[in-house]
């Protein structure tokens, strides 16, 4: 092959690879918006709280959404409900045991049943391993993904930075007994099911 042609072909391949390559989105949000909300039905009213110390990375390529993968972690100690005494109980050894199990994590390796639901929006099932209180279970989490191209810089008030945002939303339910949280106990006071609702944003600044 002509060396000139080879150089052009190589440059072209490099550019195409760079554009098409999946980007890594960092979910440690500089604006502190990321949180996972948990809801447990209870005697007087549902106990609703948040876990706010979210970190993690997801690789995502809008051209191949199914190949997305990543890991999201939440610091157990960041779990909070509006009542301080309840928060203390929640973080204690009988419930989350935040002192011993510092993180709650979800690691997924692929997205299944990916469907486009709009411009830059997809619904899918994230298949992966959810770990809580040291117990890991395979789960399928229904998610919707929104790819906001060029919105990273705008969001941090530096439009010149460029970059993209990836917003992941979802709701799923776990049984606390599956993760060794008071199995079979106090079910008349606090429901056995925990509903987790999340809306997380990850940023990928322009390289």
């Amino acid at each position: 092959m002509n060396p000139m042609l080879r150089t052009i072909a190589f440059a072209g391949f490099t550019i195409v690879s760079a554009v098409a390559a999946p980007k890594a989105y960092d979910f440690k949000d500089p604006k502190g918006v990321n949180a996972i909300q948990f809801t447990l039905d209870s005697v007087l009213e549902p106990i609703v709280g948040t876990a706010s110390a979210v970190e993690g990375k997801v690789t995502f390529d809008p051209a191949d959404v199914a190949a997305s993968q990543g890991r999201i972690e939440v610091a157990s100690a960041s779990l909070k409900v509006p009542n301080d005494k309840m928060t203390e109980h929640l973080l204690g050894a009988d419930w989350i045991d935040a002192g011993k199990h510092e993180d709650i994590s979800f690691e997924f390796t692929k997205l299944e049943s990916v469907k486009s639901i709009g411009d830059g929006k997809w619904s899918a099932l994230a298949a992966g391993k959810f770990t809580l209180k040291g117990v890991s279970k395979e789960v399928l989490v229904p998610v919707t993904l929104s790819h906001l191209e060029g919105a990273y810089g705008k969001r941090v008030n530096k439009p010149e930075l460029g970059g993209d945002l990836l917003v992941v939303r979802g709701v799923f339910t776990l049984l606390r007994s599956d993760f060794g949280i008071q199995p079979g106990k106090n079910e008349d006071k606090v429901a056995p099911a925990i509903q987790l609702t999340f809306a997380l944003v990850g940023g990928a600044p322009k390289a």
Binding site: A35, Q37, P82, N83, S146, L165, V167
Partner: peptide, 24 residues
């Protein structure tokens, strides 16, 4: 009519992502 609260959750919306989040 629920449990007493020491910190009250306040809902806010991130304008760019439209994510609804809670501050206390």
């Amino acid at each position: 009519q629920g449990w007493s609260q020491n910190q009250v959750p306040v809902k806010q919306v991130d304008p760019i992502t439209e994510i609804e989040f809670v501050t206390y």
